[in-house]
Design a binder for these strands. Sequence first.
DNA 1: CAATGATTTAACCAAATGGTTGACTCTATA
DNA 2: TATAGAGTCAACCATTTGGTTAAATCATTG
Lengths: 114, 114
Amino acid sequence: MVKSEIGQLDLIFHALADSTRRSIMRGISKKQKTVSEIAKPFTMSLAAVSKHLKVLENAKLIDRKKEGSYQIVSLNAETLKTADQWISYYQQFWGNRLDALQELLEEKKHEPKH
Amino acid sequence: MVKSEIGQLDLIFHALADSTRRSIMRGISKKQKTVSEIAKPFTMSLAAVSKHLKVLENAKLIDRKKEGSYQIVSLNAETLKTADQWISYYQQFWGNRLDALQELLEEKKHEPKH
DNA sequence: CAATGATTTAACCAAATGGTTGACTCTATA
DNA sequence: TATAGAGTCAACCATTTGGTTAAATCATTG
């Protein structure tokens, strides 16, 4: 009855299924932050944010390094790639998908807006 | 207090966060199936599978059309693209990501294994 | 029209989720 | 060394999830 048999994909997708957590990802995507900095925009308690971070960390979507009395939190895009690969695989079966995505990527290269 | 304010991304990622549901997606990716056909490989009850299908349907990850007394269930890869775009966006911040994914896509084109 | 097949709905249950508050730990510093 | 700041942990709570079984619906067919 191994309890830790929960797949990595389960953890990743579950972590991304919450808008607070996606918002955290967005917040640190541009620049790494401390836990308090991450928490500032939210109205919920720091403890709640701490829990969200643990969910993201368990899914290996973020990394932390201790720096003196705080922690620096940053994205782990390697893991995002795992999820992306799963999705991409199933999109194969949707014919024109590959070309569509490649076009999308081309656009982003030339016009790194947003 | 609008309860239906749950975002589409929440629904999509939540739906994908369960290995039974990903397995269902895999099952119908090659060829559309009826509900009973989908349920066959699983040990859980048909009612349980029916609930999983509802979760996938709510996320618009699958489509159904009624055909006489059964239903035909099929993938909706358009929605997978929505999730993929979210992920891709955040992977931008990971430098070499675009090229890596494009290479991956190239490989898949030439070698459609699996 | 009665019976069978395909699927959903309802009622129920245990476990997990997402939040809270309050106590705790660890580091830096006055 | 006492105190403040950064963050986690523990206990608690309401809601959601993922499963069950049993009854209900709806179309097909004898």
